[in-house]
Design a binder for these strands. Structure first.
Lengths: 201, 201
DNA sequence: CCACATCTGTAGTGAACACTACATATCTGG
DNA sequence: CCAGATATGTAGTGTTCACTACAGATGTGG
């Protein structure tokens, strides 16, 4: 098989730059011109490698999720449901206000509502958020089996709750909330999980 | 003063239609063509009445907040902090899945991230959300003064928390969560407020 | 060194966008 | 009934957008 001219840029490095642009401006707000400039390539290279704008977003989302999963594994490794929630929400407060990244979360900033032709982008993001929620739910199911959560506790509802708080914090972060404000929210939110936990004195 | 030809459409009715379009498609996703069609007018009438697209959004936001305030007053009229949170979050679960409106909340769907030229739209929405948060905070301050909240409770943090959960629920609603799922989130969320309340047997 | 395959940069393409010029229509004050 | 003022409908304006045609560059297999 003939090989042809090799690619002159690194796809993962370029994806990191694209990710940042989508994160800061959203899917529709990000233009191909901004993306190509950040990635250091020209439009034909982008289209040859990722198909189109939506393909680039999907690739960026996969990379985002992959990087995030490393951290999520640490979160669900916490010994109790309460500590899982605490690590998750406190960590999110820090991550969403980390000056190294745009504020908030790509899975929210990417796009909540989109115009004609991009209607499925919000659902694409929702599917990625759902993966996180599933991971939490599985962890809470285990917590209940271990007697760490009360008999009446609903692991799926708890996971959905933690996920909802994360998203809300992301929106607040992107509109200027500082780290301390988000930590306060996280601190209150954890108490709901605590209320579903068994007492172990 | 000379009067000129009178307007042939009702501004508030037209605003209701525009509100729905922004709610469903977001600020950037909504086009002038969609807006004028929904409003039943032509572009020159829109621009004469509201200045430009952003002016129309601001007018729609004001109307949204005005309609919503009627309900918010009922919410903060609840006798305890816990019941305020419950009315608020359960009511939001119902409102955000009301088939009479687009799913979610205009103050979230309107736009979380926007492109060049609309950077201040997300902050405009955040300012409206902050008004709600202030109303909750004032109510929780009163609750603390009445001994309804514990000594260590932080009314501002509680208000921010309830606001964050509302926003998170709005995002979930817009990506397909049903009423039952949102009610479960609300139900868990209320327990954090309950944990900050004094026991009154 | 040649045939072919793939990448890259230049320079566009048509479409969709927010917005408006202008002629006409409809009102009020005198 | 007339003059001035404002609203409306038609039909655009220039700009920006995602995307691509094409020619030249750079690799591999024979």
């Amino acid at each position: 098989m003939r090989m042809g001219r090799p690619r002159e840029f690194d796809a993962e490095t370029a994806l990191d730059q694209a990710m940042e642009v989508f994160w800061r401006h959203g899917y529709e707000g990000a233009t191909i011109a901004q993306l190509t400039e950040a990635m250091g390539i020209n439009p034909p290279s982008l289209y040859a490698c990722f198909g189109n704008k939506e393909g680039l977003l999907k690739a960026a989302l996969e990379r985002y999720t992959k990087l995030r999963n490393v951290w999520m594994n640490e979160v669900v490794a916490a010994p109790t449901a309460r500590e899982v929630a605490e690590r998750m929400l406190m960590g999110i407060a820090d991550k969403q206000t980390d000056p190294a990244n745009p504020p908030g979360c790509l899975l929210v900033q990417g796009g909540i509502a989109c115009g004609t032709g991009s209607e499925n982008v919000p659902f694409e993001l929702a599917a990625h958020r759902a993966r996180n929620e599933d991971q939490l739910r599985d962890r809470f199911i285990r917590a209940k089996a271990e007697g760490d959560l009360k008999e009446g506790a609903d692991p799926a509802a708890l996971a959905r709750y933690v996920s909802a708080v994360s998203v809300g914090m992301g929106v607040m972060a992107s509109s200027g909330a500082n780290r301390e404000a988000l930590r306060q929210v996280a601190s209150v939110a954890v108490q709901a999980v605590e209320a579903q936990s068994t007492d172990r004195s």
